[in-house]
Amino acid sequence: MKTQNFKTITLLLVVFLTSTSMNLMAQDEQERPRRQGPDAKALADKRLKIPDLTDAQSEQIKKIRVKAQQQTLPIKNTMREKRARLTTLSTTEKANMNEINKVVEEIGDLQTQLMKHRETSRQEIRALLNDEQRVFFDSHMQRRHRGKHQKHRRG
Rank of each mutant, 00 (worst) to 15 (best):
Q123E: 13
L73D: 00
I61P: 00
K49S: 12
A127V: 01
N96Q: 06
V14A: 15
T120P: 03
K116I: 01
L129I: 04
R47I: 08
R118M: 11
Q36D: 12
Q71I: 01
D28H: 07
L114P: 02
Q36T: 15
I100Y: 02
A44V: 11
K94Y: 01
I100T: 08
E81H: 07
L17E: 04
K116Y: 00
K76N: 09
E59G: 02
L17R: 04
T87E: 11
K76T: 03
A44I: 10
P38A: 14
P74K: 02
R35M: 15
N23M: 12
V14Y: 12
R118P: 03
D109A: 06
L53V: 12
Q113A: 14
T10V: 13
E99H: 06
S58F: 00
L114Q: 06
A127K: 04
A42N: 08
Q57F: 00
A56D: 15
P74I: 08
R34H: 11
K46W: 08
D28S: 13
T112N: 10
A68T: 09
S58H: 09
A40T: 04
N77V: 03
M22R: 00
V15P: 05
Q69N: 10
E93N: 10
L73R: 13
K63I: 02
T120W: 03
T92P: 02
M115G: 12
M97I: 14
R34N: 14
E105M: 09
M25D: 06
I50C: 01
T20M: 14
L12I: 14
P74V: 02
R32G: 05
K63E: 06
E106G: 08
K46T: 13
A44R: 12
A40K: 02
A68F: 11
Q113D: 08
T92D: 08
I61S: 03
V66T: 08
P74L: 07
D52R: 03
Q69W: 03
R126V: 11
